[in-house]
């Protein structure tokens, strides 16, 4: 089972990883920026993920140790920039024929209403919305259902 997590906030990433580790046997792969996700997506060495959990608002990249910054695509700002990075990542995922059926979870502080336009546009795609306000059990249950594990080993006490 392969779970990918795209989350930039270190505190939240730490918590989510802890929740997922408590419920699923595999260690999720963490990516912190849109550029890192796209790089991973292009990599041929990684196996097909069973589910990808996306934060929606993500930075494009991180500062490299030499202080350089990878340039963003020309249409970066026009396509929503930081505010729609997770959506773009999901679309990039599905654009790969091998990954077109991979389910995506939009796990975000944004509300359903904030994402209404995008969710409508993505109708027919394996996309699922979950608010970060929800308890961890919901994330585990949703991911479990998506990866075919109906009874993931969740213990609420293990989270946070």
């Amino acid at each position: 089972m392969a779970i990918w997590l795209v989350e930039d906030d270190p505190t939240q990433a730490k918590d989510i990883l802890a929740v997922l580790k408590s419920a699923f046997p595999t260690l999720p792969l963490l990516m912190k920026t849109e550029q890192e996700f796209l790089a991973v997506l292009k990599s041929t060495v990684l196996a097909r993920p069973d589910v990808v959990i996306f934060d929606v608002m993500l930075p494009w990249t991180e500062i490299a140790e030499d202080g350089t910054v990878v340039r963003a695509p020309e249409d970066y700002e026009e396509s929503g920039g930081f505010f729609r990075a997770g959506i773009r990542c999901a679309e990039a995922l599905w654009a790969n024929p091998a990954f077109s059926e991979v389910p995506a979870v939009l796990f975000t502080v944004l509300t359903n209403g904030d994402l209404a336009k995008d969710l409508k546009r993505l109708e027919g795609r394996p996309v699922h919305y979950l608010s970060k306000k929800e308890l961890p059990e919901k994330l585990i249950a949703l991911v479990g259902s998506l990866v075919g594990d109906e009874n993931p080993g969740l213990s609420a006490g293990n989270v946070r």
Binding site: D8, M57, L58, P59, W60, T61, E62, I63, V69, V70, R71, A72, Y76, G81, F82, F83, A85
Partner: peptide, 9 residues
């Protein structure tokens, strides 16, 4: 410009 790319918020 670079600041916008490395942190969205």
């Amino acid at each position: 410009e670079q600041a916008k790319l490395v942190t969205g918020s």
